[in-house]
Amino acid sequence: MTDVETKRGRVRRLLIDPLASGYGGMGFRFPKGTDEKKQRSYLDWMADWLGYLGDEELKRLRACLSAHGDGAKRCFWPPRATVVFFAQAARPRPIETWPECASWFASIEGPKAREEGTLVATMRFIERNIRPPYTPKDRRDVAQEAANLARRDVEARERVARGRAYPDDAQFVAWYQQLTERAEALIGDGRQAGAA
């Protein structure tokens, strides 16, 4: 029987352990006097929170964090905000794992975005920015991306149907369909919220 590595174990192996053992000469540690429970809690949070990243993304994150330690000697574990910032740069966290952001779709806003044709673009905006599109500029950007995605989807589907597809057309159509299904699943009871 083979051992199966957990997401938490993979994050520890590729990110936490190398940073703690001196990757890049850092040897991250906690400030003297930090409660062991707080230390364990921070590292557990990191292992759980970063589990969505792939191996190569974790290695890139390790390189970024190694240069952003906290304290005068930059040898302490960085604040959570720093970890989140660089993790988002490596790959935005899927919205399904952010209940605070995903709940926006279950409100009246989800069905509204579907009706406006901006559902996928809105989901992508929230994943990238960790907030809904509140400002007029945000909404313009979302509308523009939605129009571009919809146009490309229609064009790619037409080329595939005619047998004249570009090499990435089928891949784009599948990717866009998957995003659409993810966004629709987030709406959940939003239809009821909109009716209330």
Rank of each mutant, 00 (worst) to 15 (best):
M1L: 14
T2R: 08
K7A: 11
G9N: 01
R13L: 02
R13A: 03
R13P: 02
L14H: 03
L14F: 03
D17T: 05
G25M: 08
M26H: 12
T34W: 10
K37H: 11
Q39A: 00
S41N: 00
M46E: 04
A47F: 10
D48L: 03
W49Q: 02
Y52G: 04
G54Q: 04
G54H: 10
L58M: 11
K59Y: 13
R60I: 01
R62A: 06
R62D: 05
L65E: 11
F76Q: 03
P79D: 04
V84M: 15
A89K: 08
E96C: 10
W98E: 04
E100T: 11
A102V: 04
A102E: 08
F105E: 09
I108K: 12
I108M: 01
I108S: 05
P111Q: 06
K112M: 11
R114G: 15
E115I: 14
T118K: 15
L119M: 08
L119A: 14
R128T: 11
R128K: 10
P136W: 01
K137Q: 09
D138C: 00
A147C: 13
N148Q: 14
N148W: 07
R151I: 04
D153C: 01
A161R: 13
R164Y: 13
Y166K: 13
P167I: 02
P167K: 03
V173I: 15
Q178F: 14
G190H: 09
Q192H: 02
Q192G: 04
A196I: 04
